[in-house]
């Protein structure tokens, strides 16, 4: 017992120190790097939001939705169309985005969540494809594949720093909110549902209600992310709803570590950075990522976070062993 309390104290010091160092690094990054990496990180933070909220749904609740990218697009188009067609201020458009995507999530959830889990994946998949075709074909309104020009939050160039902090803040907030949910009563219910829905129901949990709530919540978060992304990128196209995007989110979450708070964060940042850094390798990047995901899922389910965790355990065990010898 003594050893444990001892490592706890040093561990705590180490922990708070590294947290502080990380925050400092993240906060100061814009002063050390150029516009290019700021953009890369901005997009990476966007994926952090998507990956984390999908992890809440798929990882913690066990609802394997494959329409998360479509909900982001719905949010993005909602805000962009309201702002360009009705002259709404951007912040009002962004506020409307999660409402519309959560509403769509609610309707889809009502229809699918009563059924076996497997239907949810298929129905959401077909839903995403249909959203893509609909946006693509209603080009009089959405400009389809032509791409919809969206007014930017910070107009002009050289705004990389502003966007960096904006998306950093959004990502941090999303992660905090999800952390809060997981540790709340709701998180407990959701995990109970994932582990065994039947048992959860017997325990008196209204499973359908909590499932739909989780579905709406994560769709809403995706909608916010999509809206901000649209107003950052200045352009929205149905390519956002290509299945590759969804696969990308899955890859990020699995490589980072599914069912952990830090996993999707690390996965999203890592994958986005690697994708940008190795641009000239083209499709080979995706081949490598896909292989990595298969290997992780097949051999080792916990992703990067799990690997680090086990590495740390191994080191502390060795340390203890050595101290024991001494």
């Amino acid at each position: 017992m003594k050893e444990i309390s001892y490592t706890k104290i040093t561990g705590f010091k180490w922990y708070s120190l590294s947290i502080a160092a990380l925050l400092l690094l993240v906060a100061l990054l814009p002063f050390s790097t150029g516009q290019y990496y700021l953009q890369v990180f901005t997009v990476a933070f966007y994926y952090v939001i998507l990956a984390s909220s999908w992890n809440l749904l798929a990882g913690y609740t066990g609802q394997f939705s494959l329409a998360h990218h479509a909900f982001a697009a719905i949010g993005g188009y909602t805000s962009a169309l309201l702002v360009t067609n009705f002259g709404l201020p951007i912040w009002l458009g962004i506020l409307a985005a999660p409402l519309s995507s959560a509403l769509m999530g609610f309707i889809l959830g009502m229809l699918c969540l009563r059924m076996r889990a497997i239907y949810l994946a298929i129905a959401t998949w077909a839903f995403a494809e249909s959203v893509r075709i609909t946006i693509s074909m209603t080009y009089e309104i959405t400009r389809g594949d032509l791409g919809l020009a969206v007014p930017k939050i910070f107009p002009g160039i050289g705004q990389g720093v502003a966007y960096y902090y904006l998306f950093l803040g959004l990502a941090a907030m999303t992660v905090l909110v999800i952390m809060f949910i997981i540790r709340s009563r709701m998180g407990y219910y959701l995990r109970a549902i994932r582990n065994d829905e039947m048992v959860a129901r017997v325990m008196g949990i209204n499973t359908t209600r909590w499932k739909i709530l989780a579905f709406m919540l994560s769709s809403g978060i995706a909608g916010i992310a999509g809206a901000f992304y649209g107003h950052y990128n200045g352009l929205l196209t149905p390519v956002m709803i290509d299945f590759n995007e969804m696969a990308f989110i899955v890859i990020m979450v699995v490589i980072g570590g599914i069912r952990s708070i830090a996993g999707p964060v690390i996965g999203a940042i890592l994958i986005e950075l690697l994708t940008e850094t190795f641009r000239e390798f083209g499709e080979i990047r995706m081949v490598v990522f896909a292989l990595a995901v298969i290997a992780i899922a097949r051999l080792y389910n916990e992703g990067a976070v799990g690997a680090v965790r086990q590495g740390a355990q191994w080191i502390s065990r060795r340390k203890q062993a050595r101290e024991g010898v001494n």
Binding site: F64, I118, A247, M286, I294, A297
Partner: peptide
């Protein structure tokens, strides 16, 4: 199992 199969086959498709 469902989660595993979904992840693996989606990645297989990407591959």
């Amino acid at each position: 199992r469902t989660e595993y199969a979904t992840i693996v086959t989606i990645s297989l498709g990407v591959l």
